[in-house]
Every structure is written in C-alpha cells, then in structure tokens.
Design a protein around this nucleic acid. Structure first.
Lengths: 328, 328
DNA sequence: CTGAAAGCGCTAACAC
DNA sequence: GTGTTAGCGCTTTCAG
C-alpha cells in the first residue's frame, strides 16, 4: 500500500514535508502550493496512514482497553458502550475484553494489552485480580478500576455504595409489609455481591426478621441452572425475592418461565435496570446504578492519568430505587 | 521500559539472539545455556514484548475488528461476544466498534481501522454502507459481512432467511386462530427488517387477511419513545403483535409496563431470544437465530481470508420458532 | 550457534 | 519552506 515515501517520490519532495502536511502540522511551514499537491496525490494514490508506525514512533497508540468480567451481563454491556462513546469523542478506540470472571484470563489479557501498548485500561477486576492490576501499574499503564474495589491496589475506583443501596431497598420492602424476603446471589466472592448481601442481612436483622433470612448462592457458569432450579421452588413460596445482579435475575426469569411465572402478590427486587420486564401484573422493582455517569467518570479519570495525573481517588455514585409508580 | 536491546546488553549477546529466544524460534539455533540466561533476565527485567514494533515489522497486528450497528442490541452483543471467544482461541484481539446505524460513522471507523492495520473486519453494514465496505476491500483488508447482505459488494456473508422465518411464524399464529396481527418495526431501511415485513405481509395475504395488515414504523433513536407510545394504543387492542427485532421489543416492553402489561389472551411474537421475558401469564414467543453458529462461521471465514482464501460465499443458517411449550 | 545490518513507515530535531 | 538524518523496537536475511 502507499506510503509517505511513495507520495514524496512522486512529487519530488521529502517525506518529512509529506508527513507535515498529512498530519496537519504544515501551518506556516509548508507552502500552500506544495500542501495542495501533497493532499491531492494522497487522495489520488489512496493513501492511508500507517498508525502502527506512527504509534511506534510517538509512543502512544490511541487505544484503550476495557476489561469486564462478563460482557453478556447487560450492566457491563451498557457500561462498555458508554465508555466507547466517550472514548470516541476523545479520539480513542477501545479493545473490549472479557475475563469470564477468571483470574488467569484476566492476567493473561493484561499481559497482552501491555504488549499492545494500549494507552490505558479500565478494568472490572476478577475476584483475585490484584496481581494483574499490579502488573499493569508496574508497566506504568494508566489504570482505573470500576464496579469492584480491589483492596491492596492503589488505583482510581468508581462505583456505588452497594451496602446502602441494598439495605435501603430491603428496608422499604419490609416497611411495605413483606416479611419472607429471600436473596439469590451468585457464588462469586466479589465486593459488590458481598456488600449487597450484608445490606440485606442487616436490614432484616434491624427489623427483627432474622428468622426469615434466606440466602441462596447460585454457581456462576457450570451448575447455574441446576442451582436456580433447586432454589426457585423455595423462592416461589416467599413474599419477595431479591436478585443481587442482572445476570442472576435474567437467568432466574428463564426458570420462572418454566413454572408459570411470578406468583400473584410476590415482589421481585433486582439490582440494575430491568424496566423491560415490568410488563405484567407482577410487582418488579429495581435498584438503578447511574451507568452513564460511572462510565463517563471512569473515562475522565483515565484520560487524566494518560495526561500525567498522579493522584488516585475513589468515586461513589448514588443509586435510585425504582418501583413501577415511577412510570405512571 | 525494557527492550530486547537492554537484555542483549546485559548479557553481552546480540539482540537477534534475544529475539530468537523470546519469540520461541530458538529451537536448535541458540544454545540451551544462552537461551536460559535470556529467559531468566527477561523475567528479571520484567520484559514485555512491544507488539507495535513487531506488528510494524511483520506487517500484521493480530487484531481484528467487529463493527456492529448497535451494541446495546442484545443480538449484536451476543454475536460480538461469541466472535471474541473464537478470536481469543486463534490469538486475536478484537476491536469492537459501534456505528450507531450511521453511514458516516461507519465509513470513518473503517478508515481508522485501515490505519490501525487490523488483520480483518467483520461488519454489520449500515443502511448505505457499500462505500465503506468497498474502501475496506480496496485496501485488501479481509472482510466478512454479517446479518445484512449488502448488494453490490462481493464479500462473504452470513445470516438467516428472514423472509421465511417471519412468514412461517406468522402463518403459525394464523393457524392458531390469531387474526388481527400487527407488526412493529424500526424505521431503518435494512434488508432483514424489510424481509421480515415481506414475510408478514405475504403470510397475511395468503391467509386472506389483508384487511388486518397493520404496519407500524418506529423511528430509531430520537422519537422512538414517542412513536411507540402512539402505536401501542393500537397494539393493545389487537390479537397479536410481532416485534421485528430485539431492540424494538425491549423498548416496546418498557412502554407496555406503563399501561399495565400485555393484555390477557394477546400474543407477542419477537425476533431473537426473549426467554427471560416469558415469565408471566402472557403468551410470548420468539424466533431464534443461531447466534453462536453465525459468529463462529463469520470468524472462520475471516480467518480463511486472512490466510489467503480468495473466493467468497453466502451462508444462510436456519432459525427456530420458540413457544413456551419448549420449556416445559 | 551467534552477530551485524537492513528496514518496516513514521516523526521530529536540526540544518540549510 | 524544505530536506537530511536518526531512531522508535522489532524480525530476518546473511555472514561467519
């Protein structure tokens, strides 16, 4: 394919002149005439810049990466989408990576990204992702973590107060007369889920309902459906069920479909937007995280880091409890 | 950061030797002793290959790109996910790009990807994406198109028979006694939606139900909610409503939530997996596209192209109609 | 078995 | 205003 040299040869100018023109740095340094001829031949010869060469030379790739644990989780899908839109505005492309909640994959991917010389990484750490995060930092690649705080790693973080959000929503349910509230959570040892569990447990205790506390741990991946099947029998007899994440909710719903739907009078509570599911007569509510804001903040922090900012911070955004009333 | 030269200097060997070892090409060309010392110091000095330099030298980046029109559409989200998994196995990373159904963005992104020297592109073309596709082909970047056939461009294509799938499902509804079946489709001039519409219309006509044909076009983006609001009044009074894509379905469901859910006895039909929505007493069915297979085939074709395959082909996969019975 | 040297395509000093 | 030159970090002949 055509290179700057090719254009230079054709025009009998040097490739530095061509470079100046094509990279828009010709202002006052190249004559109008030459400029136009370069531009014209570039078009004519169907020239496309070789970013690889440019990146190698200038030491930055205009590429960032977003590593999430499960892209098929709508929450992360949305987050990635918003980060991409922000990145696009700033002239960055984004490599989307899926770690599948797997520490090994996370580390391996971090290694590859370092090699690729990405300009920065926004990551949702896997359960034991600290080593990978440290490797990223050792290589001086700008890093911001999202959704899950990783203790022991001094990196920017943006997320929500999962404990408070969970506790508040459960307390609301209790105030409205629900007693037998059970919780379905994934069997992953990650801070958000642990916090949501703690919020639930504390809310129940404070209301004197410890005898109703009922926690179901659902395996992530292999065995999920089986666990869901087993737990759902119990769930169907309760007053309310609290799904602690979008993924366990949708999977749970597939199972609920098998047994004829959510029982009359039961309330379903879920973390993350499930608006499209609030269609029937059943009472479905959810806790909304401000995804767009989280994504925006994460990218903003990353950009600051890329531009040399040293200090790190933790940013907590507020959640909202959504009940159907909000739509009427 | 450490380079091969640094390691070479430390060991008093040449960087070519280091390169040989580190790229695994040392078999029988470098002594066991030197090999081990190189490996050890590389680890010690925390060496990470600079892929940019390698790519520039060898002329390939181990990077492919997937361009979809709307990543927040679950169908495309899943597709991207599966392509990523396939790519990972083959040692490729994937740049996920969102064109937002916009021809201009599509073309601009194609241009950037060409500059980035991606090894191949899997694209869902925008409505008038032919020029961008041609540009990609002119630059000899391997290309396969998915979901939407772009007439006038000789590229690999993988998708489903939208006309047949739509017609068959509508005919089934009619056979089961539904008459007043209305269709909700996005206002995008793209082959799959046009085909699905044609399938619906033909099924209705063949059953002598042309007087019931009722097509609602919903704007994509700005105005979507407004259009949905207007159309849904009508929809609620019909026997059945056919949403032609996942996006219009979920958006529609948000609206349905406002008015108290799907009316008793009404049937909702949709393209693409909506299993988690089949929870209530309402009759929800869907047409399933074999996403994983489509993704796999697309990547397989791309890989073949990357490896030099010249001929192009079109691959059509079968769909399945899913009704609740399948889950019992 | 190991080293020297060229070059991928570009940018940025620095000269003229 | 324009050209020369060096060099980003790597791979790959080609010698020895």
């Amino acid at each position: 394919m055509t290179s700057m040299q090719d254009i230079a040869d054709r025009l009998n100018v040097s490739k530095s002149t061509v470079s100046l023109v094509l990279s828009g740095k010709s202002a006052g340094r190249v004559s109008e005439q030459v400029r136009n001829r370069v531009l014209a031949t570039a078009r004519e010869m169907d020239y496309h810049l070789n970013e690889l060469a440019r990146s190698l030379r200038v030491g930055s790739s205009n590429l960032i990466s977003v590593i999430v644990t499960d892209i098929s989780n709508e929450f992360f899908g949305q987050m990635t989408f918003h980060i991409q839109e922000e990145a696009k505005k700033a002239g960055y492309l984004v490599l989307t990576i899926n770690s599948n909640e797997n520490d090994g994959e996370f580390e391996q991917m971090a290694r590859i990204l370092i090699s690729k010389k990405v300009d920065g990484i926004i990551a949702v750490p896997t359960p034991a992702g600290a080593t990978a995060l440290k490797m990223i930092q050792d290589q001086k690649v700008p890093l911001v973590t999202v959704d899950r705080l990783c203790e022991g790693v001094d990196a920017d973080y943006v997320g929500v107060d999962n404990y408070e959000a969970s506790k508040k929503s459960v307390s609301e349910l209790i105030a409205q007369g629900f007693r037998d509230i059970i919780m379905m959570r994934l069997d992953l040892d990650i801070p958000p889920l642990n916090e949501r569990e703690r919020g639930y447990v504390d809310a129940m205790k404070e209301a004197g309902l410890e005898q109703y506390i009922d926690l179901h741990r659902i395996r992530f991946g292999e065995g999920m459906e089986e666990d869901l099947d087993r737990s759902l029998g119990k769930a169907l007899k309760s007053d309310a069920v609290f799904f602690t994440s979008h993924r366990v909710f949708t999977e749970g719903m597939k199972n609920v479909a098998k047994v004829g739907g959510v029982p009359q009078g039961q309330c379903v509570l879920c973390f993350d937007d499930v608006r499209p599911y609030m269609t029937g007569t059943s009472d479905i509510r959810y806790i909304e995280q401000p995804i767009a804001q989280i994504a925006q903040k994460a990218f903003e922090l990353l950009l600051a880091k890329i531009r040399g900012e040293k200090s790190t911070g933790r940013y907590i955004f507020p959640t909202r409890s959504i009940t159907r009333q909000n739509f009427m």
